[in-house]
Amino acid sequence: MREPSAGDGARREETWVGSGDHDIELKRASDGAADLVLQRFFDGDGRLLTIPAKQSRQIAMYDLLAQRFVPGVRYTELEVNRELMAVYGDYVSLRRGLVDFGFLDRADGQYWRSGGSVPVGEDPAPVGADAPPGGPAPTAAARAGMRRGSPGATPRTTSPRGVRRREAIVAAASGLIADRGYAAVGMDDIGAAAGVTGPAIYRHFDSKAAVLAEVFERVIDSLLDAVTPHAAEPDGANQTTSVIAPTDAARALAEAIDRYATGVSARRRLIAVFVREVHHLPAEQGERLVTSQRHLIGRWRELLAAAHPDWSVQRVRTAVHGAFGLLNSVGTYESPLTDAELAAELTSLTRAALAV
């Protein structure tokens, strides 16, 4: 797997995916901070030490990370997560940043390069070259498309204004669907609530189902936020925690409960949409959601079993599923509590139920 190197700064000056004003601004900011970012924020093995605070340095960092993905190749979210987990523990923040700054774009559960610098004079190193088994590798057609500069190899870059407009549409859709139900909400309703007039909404989403899919992306992200990097690895649910002391396992599970309770309390309207409208979710989105839930539930079961070695397998399984039912119940009723108050109540009840 190719790691960032000092030579990346020179290659950055050759080719930049995208040519709009936003892309030019990104390139200038990235060029100016690239060397400093490599020296201060990456270790000798190419792992990110911390995310820079300054935006110009963040852009340079995201440009380096974007080079791990080959233009013209589409990746599943799991493949993106695997790649970013090799660089930094908080892969969810990295993935969001790559999308928000226009280095990656996503639709229908797939991600692709949409901005940033590309090595010139050589094929970019396949992301999966030294990656775990199952990592993505570009097809011959994709490589040929990059060399030809085919239109499909460089999808459009999302501008900051486009990101804000997209966020407004998703927020409006979440509220309307939560209030009226999916069937009673039309694209015109969503556009009007988001301040997007006429057919302009179709520049961001081609259908109401696509908007709903994006809403559920946020639900999936909220689940992933509560998963530790260890828990999100593909085989994490099959790993043993027998070496973890019961007190350590109980503390880790208590922290995970607090994070999850905080997440669902702050996103209770999204959770409400999920509970009531999940049957409208496209098949691929549904599979990804199930995969995320499986990782999370598997990790909690491991920790609970380690915290209570005297509990049977069935008791552990029943307790964990019951805990998630309790936590996700925020989507089934209106609570007058603030987010913080609701999170505290959910955390207290769940910890009591799991005895941690």
Rank of each mutant, 00 (worst) to 15 (best):
A142Q: 12
Q285E: 14
P132S: 10
I297Q: 01
D108W: 11
L304M: 00
T291I: 10
D248E: 14
V80H: 01
Y182S: 09
R2F: 10
A323R: 00
P124R: 06
Q239A: 13
V243T: 14
H279K: 12
A86R: 12
D90C: 07
G181I: 02
P155L: 07
V330T: 07
Y62E: 04
S265A: 15
A306V: 03
T291Y: 14
A249I: 01
F69Q: 01
W300A: 04
Q55C: 08
A29I: 04
L65A: 04
L36Q: 14
S292Q: 06
Y260G: 05
P155D: 05
G116L: 02
P4L: 04
K208V: 07
N238K: 13
A178I: 03
V211H: 01
M61A: 10
R2V: 11
A6Q: 13
S117D: 03
G175D: 09
P132G: 06
I51N: 04
V87A: 08
V163I: 11
H279I: 13
W311E: 00
L36C: 09
D310S: 14
L104P: 00
E14Y: 12
L98A: 02
V99K: 04
D123T: 09
A178P: 02
D90E: 10
Y75K: 05
R147F: 08
A107R: 15
Q39M: 11
P151A: 15
A305L: 00
G325R: 01
L327N: 01
H280V: 12
V118R: 07
T241E: 15
S56A: 15
E79M: 04
G195D: 07
D339A: 15
P126E: 08
P4H: 06
S265T: 11
R28C: 09
D21K: 12
F101V: 04
F42P: 02
I244H: 10
G198V: 09
I257T: 00
D21V: 10
Y91N: 12
S242C: 08
D235L: 10
